[in-house]
Design a protein around this nucleic acid. Structure first.
Length: 157
DNA sequence: GCCAACGTTGGC
DNA sequence: GCCAACGTTGGC
């Protein structure tokens, strides 16, 4: 069963353009250090799931394009790398703490569907990222919301 | 750069 | 197990 997700990234750190420039258009979604987000990757994601690629902490925050989940979850290698900002001294190869999935580029939108547009779109009232104080970097998207947002892309293209 | 909201840590 | 202190996120 295909599921849908929204995954946030700061474009200064890793943007949809960066993903498009990766070999095979594919990249490991490393650096997630939140248990809820980890659990969704580890326990619920399947290969082929749809992903909205969201640009956060930037001038026009919003959904920049689409990717797919390209692997099952596996240990995030950066937790073992002492020189990485994502290093976690409590993790070991025998007992990894953090997991990630690979994501595969699908398309970049002609223009970002901005947070402001999402907020004003009928039918998205209970979209997770629109809730006050929502900070979770990975959230599930209902099929209904997925379709509404795809229709927004077509209108604005 | 500010700051509200949230998650994590650690003393008790 | 409580909760104050602290660090982080992310819109503005």
């Amino acid at each position: 069963m295909t599921q849908y997700w929204l995954m946030k990234s700061e474009p200064d750190c890793f943007s949809i353009d960066d993903l498009q420039q990766r070999p095979q258009l594919r990249e490991a979604w490393d650096g997630v250090r939140n248990y809820q987000a980890r659990n969704m990757m580890r326990d619920q994601m399947h290969i082929g799931d749809g992903v909205f690629f969201y640009h956060s902490n930037t001038k026009v925050p919003g959904i920049a394009g689409i990717a797919t989940v390209a692997s099952l979850a596996y240990p995030d290698p950066t937790q073992f790398q002492i020189d990485s900002p994502y290093f976690d001294p409590k993790a070991s190869a025998a007992k990894p703490i953090w997991y990630l999935v690979d994501v595969q580029f699908q398309q970049k939108f002609e223009s970002v569907i901005s947070l402001d547009q999402l907020r004003h779109q009928a039918g998205l009232e209970d979209l997770w990222i629109l809730r006050k104080g929502s900070r979770l970097s990975i959230t599930p998207i209902s099929l209904e919301h997925w379709h509404i947002i795809l229709a927004m892309r077509n209108r604005h293209a």
